[in-house]
Design a binder for these strands. Structure first.
Lengths: 239, 239
DNA sequence: CGTAGCCTGTGGTCTGACCACAGGAGGACG
DNA sequence: CGTCCTCCTGTGGTCAGACCACAGGCTACG
């Protein structure tokens, strides 16, 4: 068919085609995209242009590609927002498009919203949260392992709140500053003490949520996060 | 040089190289990337793989490419987070990775944070906001023009609050649902009435901000947004 | 000295050719 | 007749080479 030819951007043609198919419902989660060669022929562009577009979709977490044949091979639509969000935020931080303090602040805002939503909702299911809390009690954890669980905990909270955009964004923000967080952990003199403190704060936050005490939960989560970032030297002061 | 060769992912090699150069400071905003051919040779990968990586960076708003020669040609590092954010969110919404209601809810959370920050900060500069407000008073505006100004207004507010992550995310969220918003405007019976209402609400919100009345500003902005989305039929009820 | 033209380097694209891989189809064998 | 093995096919992954259009600097000419 070879659409009338978009000026200058063959790969954009491909991107638009996919996006339209997604919007029109012709493509949905789980579906397989046409093969690269087919798309190339259909749109009248080179296969390399098709690949550039697919690469974008892949990095953004929209598709997954695999080689071979069969129903699982090829490019398949998956909606994995976290991955794309993380990649985007990480790169933007690296390119100094996003100052660290803004990332941290935003995390505060979202975490606030999460605990507020959870506190207000008596139906929430914090099973996962509790199991992570328990896992964090092990005293053999390295700081890296502990921080990984910490990430899981906050992720579980966000997930329990049920907003996918917020969950993905928070996960992305966390990933974006992960290297700084880990690096910051090394700057903390007595890690054991910090770990105990974090454990206690986590328990307190969850308790406040379960008691439905919105303002208390918000206060606790705020001091929890700013406290750690300050101790790790990631943000100037308590701002 | 041709690094030890990463298995299976030539383009990832390129992406990592760029990211590392950004993190190490070897690359920064305004700098020019090596030419595609140079990168290809340096990393021992094909030029197509380099292009796939650059395409990702371009869509994510990290670089800008131009043809020709001279200092302005080639791939240049720019940190334009809004563009990338918008593309990502739009595609995720299209792929049903993000439900519309989650997008709207998130916008509420962020907008809340914005007006809260502005209300609490006596130093804020709302010059731009006021000029947009005035522009919106013209009664010859089509609904499309009005909505565009509306977007500018909210963007200006976010920008005045000073958090780049929140600003970019809000802009992205807005873009992601733009088509739905415009479509929804058509469903509104008496547009004139709605426009007047929106104008009044905007003025009220800004007034509350300038009076430093945090809670009032938050309340107003919440009802402003949910009100419109409900009227436009974008979200089921008042939540 | 000025200007018009060439020259070079850049991204943008296409073509064609391999490779590795996974799965299915078909045949060979028990 | 059933089972296993093999080949064949289609997929993404990659590379190499070839053009093109373009923008800017350089050079030779007027």
């Amino acid at each position: 068919m070879a659409e009338p030819v978009a000026p200058g951007r063959a790969w954009r043609t491909v991107l638009e085609r996919i996006e339209n198919d997604l919007l029109s419902g012709a493509l949905g989660p789980g579906d397989r995209l046409p093969s690269e060669r087919d798309l190339s022929a259909d749109l009248g562009v080179g296969r390399s242009s098709v690949r550039e577009a697919l690469r974008v979709l892949e990095v953004m977490g929209l598709i997954r590609t695999s080689t071979g044949s069969g129903p699982q091979a090829g490019a398949i639509v998956i909606a994995a927002p976290s991955g794309g969000m993380a990649a985007l935020l990480r790169l933007q931080v690296a390119a100094q498009g996003f100052p660290l303090t803004d990332v941290v602040q935003t995390r505060l805002v979202l975490e606030d919203a999460v605990v507020a939503a959870l506190s207000a909702d008596p139906q929430r299911d914090l099973t996962v949260v509790h199991s992570v809390l328990d896992a964090m009690d092990a005293d053999t954890l390295t700081s890296g392992e502990f921080l990984a669980l910490d990430a899981s905990l906050h992720y579980a909270l966000a997930e329990a709140a049920g907003n996918t955009v917020i969950t993905a964004t928070m996960a992305g923000l966390r990933t974006a500053i992960e290297s700084y967080v880990v690096e910051g952990a090394a700057r903390i003199a007595r890690w054991d003490a910090m770990a105990s403190r974090l454990r206690a704060e986590h328990r307190a936050i969850v308790a406040a949520i379960e008691q439905g005490d919105v303002s208390k939960a918000k206060t606790l989560v705020n001091s929890h996060i700013t406290g750690y970032y300050t101790a790790a030297g990631l943000v100037p002061g308590a701002d």
